[in-house]
Design a protein around this nucleic acid. Structure first.
Lengths: 242, 242
DNA sequence: ACAAAAGTGTTTTTTATACACCCATGC
DNA sequence: GCATGGGTGTATAAAAAACACTTTTGT
C-alpha cells in the first residue's frame, strides 16, 4: 500500500466487495449435514442456487456483512463464524465485463456453523432459501462450488482441533449427541464410540452435570457440559478432539 | 452478492484493495528467521517499518499483486506463496477518513517463504527495504503486527503438515540442513535430530542421491532430494512432518 | 588419536485401534 | 427376560520421546 503517489490513481482497480457465506448445520434428528443455499432472482445465473451473499455497505465491516446475510435468511442465535478465503481474480464475476465501469467484484467468503434447532428459515424476505443435504447439492452459480469445497475442508479441520461443536450443541448434551455430531460431519471411517468417549473424557473439559436423560428405551445417558475454564489452558496446545 | 437491485448503489462501499505480504526467509548460515520490511516514505506512519504492500491494479489478480511487490523488493526465484487473511473493517486505515471520497482500504494479506540465497535485496527501487530478525522487530505501521503474528502462526502450521520446505531448500540438501531449517523456525522444544531423521526417512519421499558433501571436519553427509512423485500419494493424508 | 559432524539403534512411554463385555431402563 | 441404548475395560499395535552409541572424515 505504498505506491499511492507513484502510480496514477486511474491504474488502480475499483472494487465492490461481496461476502459469500458457507453456512453449515447439522440436523441431529436425521443425521444430516446441511448447507444453506438461496436461489438467484436475477442474471447472471438466474434461478441457479448460490451461497447466501451480499455486497458490503458503507461503514460495515466484513464480518458485519457476513452476519447481516445470515440474519436475513435465518434466525441466528448460536453460531460459529470465521473468515474463509478471498476470491478476487479479474473476470471471476461476469458482471465485471461490459457495463460496469471497470468495477471488480471481490468475494470474501465466510464459513458458519449454526445450531439447527435455532436456525429457522425466514421465508418472508423475498428469497427462496433452502437447506440442502451436503451429499445432494445442485449445481451452483459463480465459483460457489469451489468456495463450498473449501468451506467443507475447513469445517472438518476445525472440528478436529477446535471446540466449535460446543458453540452449536445445546449447553447440556450426552456423549452420544457429541459423537453423532462428529460422525455426521466426518462420515464413517471415524473412530468408534468407545475410543471417542475415552479420549474426550481424558481431556478433562467435559463436566458431568449429574443429570440424566432418557430416550424411549435403554439406560439413561449422562448430561455433560463444556467447561470453558478447564479448556482454556489447552487452547493453544496442538490438541486433537477425535 | 444478490442485493444489487434492492439497494441503492450509493449505499455500497467503494474499495481499493491492498495486498500486504508477510515474507519469511531463513538464513541457514546464521540460523535466523527473517522478515522483510520496508520503511514508509509517506504519511500516515511516515518512517515506520511496514510489511511490503501495494494496491491492486486494473486487470491484476490478488496473487499477481502479491507477486509484483515481492519482485520489486527482492529477486524471486524459489518461493512458496499463499493467501493469509483479509483485514477490512472500516477505519482500519487512517487514509479512509477525511479526503478520500468514502473509499475504503481492504488488505488482503499473503504469506511467503523465500529461499534466502536467491532473495537478494533490490535497493534501486527507492525503498528502504531490510531483512529483520523475527525476534527483534521494530514497531510496525497500521495493523501490520497483527498480520505478521497471523503469518507466523500459519508458517509454523504449514511447516508441520506441508512440504513447503522443499520449495525453499536447494534441490539437494542434507538431513542436517533440513533439521536446522525446522529448528530455526520452530525454536527449541522440538524433536531431536535422531527422531526427526527416522521419521522423515520412513515417510519415503526423500531420495538418496548417492552424493556426499563435506564440511570442514567430520563425516561426509548424504545429499537427499525431495521426490515429488513419492510424495504425491501422501498429499491428502493428515501427515505430520515433525 | 581425537575432535567434529553424520548416522544408527534401543528402551520407555504414550496414543491409537479394535474389540468384548457389563449396566440400567421400559415393556 | 430381553431388547435397547449407555457405559467400561482390556489387549494389541503403532507412534512419539529420550538417549546412548557408532561411523567417517580432517588434522
Amino acid at each position: 500500500m505504498l505506491e499511492k503517489q507513484s502510480i496514477k490513481i486511474t491504474e488502480l482497480a475499483d472494487f465492490k466487495v461481496g461476502v459469500d457465506n458457507v453456512i453449515f448445520s447439522v440436523d441431529s434428528e436425521q443425521n444430516r449435514l446441511l448447507i444453506l443455499l438461496v436461489k438467484r432472482k436475477e442474471e447472471p445465473f438466474l434461478n441457479r442456487w448460490s451461497l447466501p451473499g451480499t455486497l458490503v455497505r458503507q461503514g460495515e465491516s466484513l464480518e458485519g456483512a457476513a452476519h447481516r446475510i445470515l440474519a436475513e435468511k435465518i434466525t441466528v442465535n448460536n453460531l460459529y463464524l470465521e473468515q474463509l478465503y478471498t476470491f478476487g481474480g479479474p473476470n471471476r464475476d461476469p458482471r465485471e465485463l461490459p457495463d460496469s465501469f471497470n468495477v471488480r467484484y471481490l468475494s470474501v467468503s465466510y464459513f458458519a456453523l449454526v445450531r439447527f434447532e435455532d436456525a429457522k428459515l425466514l421465508r418472508n424476505n423475498g428469497y427462496n432459501t433452502c437447506w440442502f443435504q451436503f451429499q445432494e447439492l445442485p449445481s451452483l452459480a459463480f465459483d460457489h462450488q469451489q468456495i463450498l469445497d473449501y468451506g467443507y475442508r475447513r469445517l472438518r479441520n476445525k472440528l478436529e482441533y477446535s471446540p466449535i461443536v460446543f458453540d452449536v450443541l445445546p449447553s447440556e448434551f450426552t456423549l452420544h449427541d457429541l459423537y453423532q455430531f462428529y460422525s455426521t460431519i466426518l462420515g464413517d471411517n471415524f473412530t468408534d464410540y468407545s475410543n471417542f468417549r475415552a479420549k474426550l473424557l481424558k481431556l478433562g473439559f467435559l463436566h458431568d452435570t449429574g443429570m440424566k436423560v432418557i430416550k424411549n428405551a435403554g439406560r439413561p445417558a449422562t448430561l455433560y457440559e463444556f467447561n470453558q475454564g478447564a479448556f482454556a489452558p489447552l487452547k493453544d496446545k496442538p490438541l486433537l478432539f477425535i
